[in-house]
Nucleic acid binder design. Structure first.
Lengths: 162, 162
DNA sequence: CGCTTGCTTCGAGTGCGCTCCAAGGCCATA
DNA sequence: TATGGCCTTGGAGCGCACTCGAAGCAAGCG
């Protein structure tokens, strides 16, 4: 029975409130929770992104407008961090930022866009599968070449030492 | 007896002549062979690269200087195509062009650079393995989200149709 | 109060990997 | 001879994803 943080059943995903995060497995953020209001530099530390990049994400619509403190500073929530997790994942699939922005827009538009979101994710999924296959192929080539060099090295050593 | 071009046993790899191709499995190029002297546009068609990119590769040292016809036009060999195959593979691992140039330099420097070449390839190999793991991780996230949308879709349909 | 720290904004700059352009050469066919 | 097509070169330009700079505000602390 692993229910680490989940007080409610895990139905928090893609609710009508707009954010589209994967709450299912508890992510590993250092997240105090309760009053989750991280500064931009904290988020930068968590994610490895720079504060510049975080603001840029917001500007281009890749993130919803972030809550502000009474002095106008950004205060990120756990939800925002989860979204950044997803963005990070999508980013390393090679998905263009423009497509991620598109997805973010769909999420903002509410739950009438499920079908389109699914299509987008499935297209991405196909890309990822293809990518993995390519990489495996490359891995085979690398192994062949590394094997060649290793063999060459061994015979060279054998010559040298008798 | 399939001995397409190989008169000598397959020891053509990384010989002292400089080029570093994988001759082991006969690649699938439309390669007439014999007098393999492809024009730049043929190579562009084979590889999917543009002629511009092929010249650029040569300029930056990612390819050895290509043979020329008596009028100064480039004439690519099977060996060049094999090299381009490898470059293509490395490219889609995300390896920076600068590193590929480094590898090409090592190849040009002769067979005293085997150790360094192997290190470079092994570092690349590690990157690729890590990359595959990341992509698999991402795939799991995508599957989870796609599953969510599919379920939502199904229950919505069930509501609609009774 | 003065100082530091960290935040705000907009807009310009950077690095990578191409991508394209302009001007011209060579050669085959009409 | 003229026209068209494919090739050559060096260098400029482009799109993406950041990345940084400048100017200024607000809070906290001695």
């Amino acid at each position: 029975m692993t229910q680490p943080t989940a007080t409610a059943p895990q139905q928090t995903e893609e609710t009508a409130t707009g954010s589209d995060v994967c709450a299912a497995p508890p992510p590993g953020h250092p997240r105090p929770d309760g009053q989750d209001r991280y500064t931009i530099s904290e988020v930068a530390a968590f994610t490895g992104l720079t504060a510049h990049t975080l603001r840029w994400y917001e500007r281009i619509g890749l993130m919803d407008h972030i809550d502000r403190s009474h002095t106008g500073q950004r205060r990120y929530t756990n939800r925002d961090l989860d979204w950044l997790d997803l963005v990070g994942k999508l980013r390393l699939t090679g998905m263009p930022v423009a497509d991620m922005v598109r997805y973010a827009q769909l999420v903002r538009e509410g739950d009438t866009t499920y079908a389109e979101r699914r299509e987008l994710l499935e297209a991405t999924r196909r890309d990822v599968v293809a990518r993995i296959a390519e990489l495996r192929d490359t891995l085979a080539v690398l192994d062949r070449k590394i094997g060649f060099y290793t063999d060459a090295d061994r015979s060279r050593t054998a010559e040298g030492t008798g």
